[in-house]
Design a protein around this nucleic acid. Structure first.
Length: 374
DNA sequence: GATGCGTGGAA
DNA sequence: TTTCCAAGCAT
């Protein structure tokens, strides 16, 4: 070697070295997750089932690993293939998803399974573009499935990777405006070998070492490559645009209980907040304190008794619901609603805020009567 | 590009 | 307690 490396050769050198360091770390310190193939298997050229990768990636969107695990296991046991999920009843899928949040994911999950089963012969597309054309699959998930399940050299960028890379390159542009810059930086790092493990390694690094606060730089395999660490400024990245304060709303919720213990439920509209999920009748959720939280907002007259207030925080507002309960005589359920037998409440498609409401009125009502009702 | 969309764990 | 934010997507 007579001269300094040309710029592109130096890029190649750093890409190989950085990726090698990261993959070597991943081989020793990877997390063991139910949807994952261990690195010794992928090193031998094995690949995980695309259905399982896709299912896990959809569940993991904005959701923690710990929350996903039990849902993933239940879904996989009940619907082991994309064809099985395509045949499933949507309401059963919504019930199985209840509590995991972002319910449009469950509707798109079902739609996507149907498209794969009916238009793609039960086989997932093996390119980013093909995957991204499916419902519920965006930039991140398309890249993740392409890399992990199909060995494509895709740039996988999630919140972890954004944090790792903005630190690695000391990117001063605030997120989300910096996303294109981050994507280019990642694309320049992805190795030709084991791109799926590389993606998972970046995410594991962000989750366990390159954490939002107090990152463990001393344990980091990329420490020598990291511009932020070099400047002792790792906690200054990523720079983020400030976010607005959450407004609050209030309303009333009405738990009507029949003599046999059945509770009146209704279905929310298919789209929007908690779309397609079940709820007890409620007033509107108004922004101010204009009296929509009293018993006068009830769907029908009954001896409504107050039983406390439930508070719940959504992504973009907080909600305080005054809960009322009434014993009511047998009556036909109003249009669009039904009487839910007490034994079926635990399996209903009740979002967490509605479970809180029912629990406030009837303690224990949403808990399964027996361990796993079979 | 900004906004709507859940929930729960950690600091 | 409050704040942050976690393997984002659709519009």
């Amino acid at each position: 070697m007579t001269q300094a490396l040309a710029a592109d050769e130096e890029d190649d050198w750093q890409r190989e070295t950085l990726a090698d360091a990261l993959l070597a770390w991943y081989d020793r310190h990877h997390r063991h997750l139910p949807w994952r193939l261990p690195p010794q298997a992928t090193r031998q050229g094995h690949r995980p089932d695309p259905y399982r990768v896709w299912l896990s990636e959809i569940m993991l969107q904005q959701t923690t690993v710990g929350a996903v695990k039990p849902y993933y296991e239940r879904f996989l046991e009940r619907w082991p293939t994309v064809e099985a999920l395509a045949r499933a009843d949507l309401q059963e899928v919504m019930k199985a998803w209840a509590g995991l949040g972002y319910y449009s994911r469950a509707r798109n999950l079902k739609k996507c399974a149907e498209e794969v089963a009916h238009r793609h012969g039960g086989v997932f597309p093996d390119t980013e573009a093909g995957l991204k054309a499916l419902p519920g699959i965006g930039d991140y998930t398309a890249a993740a499935v392409a890399a992990i399940a199909f060995g494509r050299r895709a740039a996988v960028v999630d919140g972890n990777v954004e944090r790792v890379v903005t630190r690695l390159r000391a990117i001063e542009t605030p997120l989300p405006a910096a996303k294109p810059q981050v994507r280019k930086a990642v694309a320049a790092l992805v190795p030709a070998e084991r791109p799926g493990d590389f993606a998972q390694a970046m995410m594991d690094l962000g989750a366990t070492i390159c954490t939002p606060r107090r990152p463990s730089c001393i344990l980091c395999p990329l420490q020598a490559f990291c511009a932020a660490r070099g400047a002792a400024a790792q906690e200054r990245f990523p720079v983020k645009a400030s976010k607005a304060a959450k407004p609050s709303r209030r309303g009333a919720a009405f738990v009507a209980v029949r003599a046999d213990g059945a509770v009146l439920l209704r279905r929310r509209p298919e789209s929007g907040l908690l779309g397609g999920m079940s709820e007890v009748p409620t007033s509107g959720w108004s922004a101010g304190s204009d009296g929509e939280d009293g018993p006068s907002a009830a769907p029908f007259p009954a001896p409504w008794e107050p039983c406390g207030t439930v508070t719940h925080t959504f992504t973009h507002f907080t909600l305080a619901l005054s809960v009322y309960r009434a014993r009511v005589a047998d009556m036909p359920a109003p249009a669009g609603s039904w009487w839910c037998a007490p034994g079926l409440l635990a399996g209903e498609a009740l979002p967490t805020v509605m479970k809180k409401v029912v629990e406030a009125a009837i303690p224990g009502a949403t808990k399964a009567r027996r361990p796993t009702g079979t």
